[in-house]
Amino acid sequence: MNRITERFKQLATRREPAFIPFITAGDPSLDMTARIVLELEKAGADVIELGVPFSDPVADGVVNQEAAQRALKTGVTLHDIVARVKLLRRQTQIPVVLFTYFNPVLAYGLESFARDADDAAVDGVLCVDLPPEEAGEYKRLLDAREIATIFLAAPTSSPERINLIAANSTGFLYYVSRTGVTGERSDVETSVEEMVARIKAKTTTPVAVGFGISTPEQAAEVGRYADGVIVGSAIVRLIGQWGDSPDTPARVAAFAKTLADAAKGKSG
C-alpha cells in the first residue's frame, strides 16, 4: 500500500486529521531542507509537501514566489530534489509529496521522472497546473509505480469536475480553500466545510485542505472536518526570515508543532 494511504488509514482509526507542512526544496539549501523535514516529522507532520521551485509560479503568492527564487539562485533542480529524497530515505520513511509545476517534470521526461521518483521512494506528486484532462500519460506512468497522483479541487469546481478530480486522485485530494494564490489569510472561507462534505460524499479518498491556513486557530477549525490540514506560506515565510541559521530547523518545527497540535485537537 502507498505510504500516504497507509498514514491516512492509521490516522482515521485515531480520528485525527493529517498535518501536512509545505516547504520549498532548496530554500535556503537542500541540506537545510533535509534537516527541516526531519524536525517537522518530530513536530507531528504526517506527510511532507516538498515544493519544487519554478521560475513562473502562477498559482503562488509572494511568499512562495520569493522562496522559489531563493532556491533557484542556488541552482537546485528537480533532479537534485529527487536525489535528495532518496538520500533522506536512510533517515526517515515519512510520506513525501512533490508539489510542482508541470514544465520541470516535462523537461525531466515523464518516464524518467516516474522511474527516478519511484527509486527515491517519493510517495506522491501534485502538479498544480496540470488538471486531470491533461494528465493521461503522467497519471498512467505514476499509477504503474504506485506513486499517488494528487489533484486540486477548488471552490469554483463544478460537481462534474469534482467527480473527475476524485476519480483521478490517489493518496489524497487537495481542496484549495480559496479562489486565489497560496498565502496567509486572516480567516478561512465559511463555505469550505460544506464543500469538503460534498467532496467526501463522493469519494473515499481523504480530502486535505490548504491555501491560506496560517494560524493554530485556523488549523484547529479545518482539522475538525477535513482529513488533512496543509500549511505552506506561514512556514515558508519563517524559513525565509531565519535562512541559514543553525537554529532554523528547530524554530520552524516549534511553530509547526503548534499547528500540528491545533489541527489534531491537542491544544486550546
Binding site: D129, E133, F151, L152, A153, A154, T156, S158, R161, T179
Partner: peptide
C-alpha cells in the same frame, strides 16, 4: 475539442480557473 492544435495547446491551469475557461 480539447483545445489542441496537433499536440500543441491545451488547458494547463490551476483548477480554480478551469470553470472560468469552460
Amino acid at each position: 475539442a480539447r483545445g489542441r492544435y496537433g499536440e500543441f495547446g491545451g488547458k494547463f491551469v490551476p483548477e480554480t480557473l478551469m470553470c472560468a475557461l469552460d
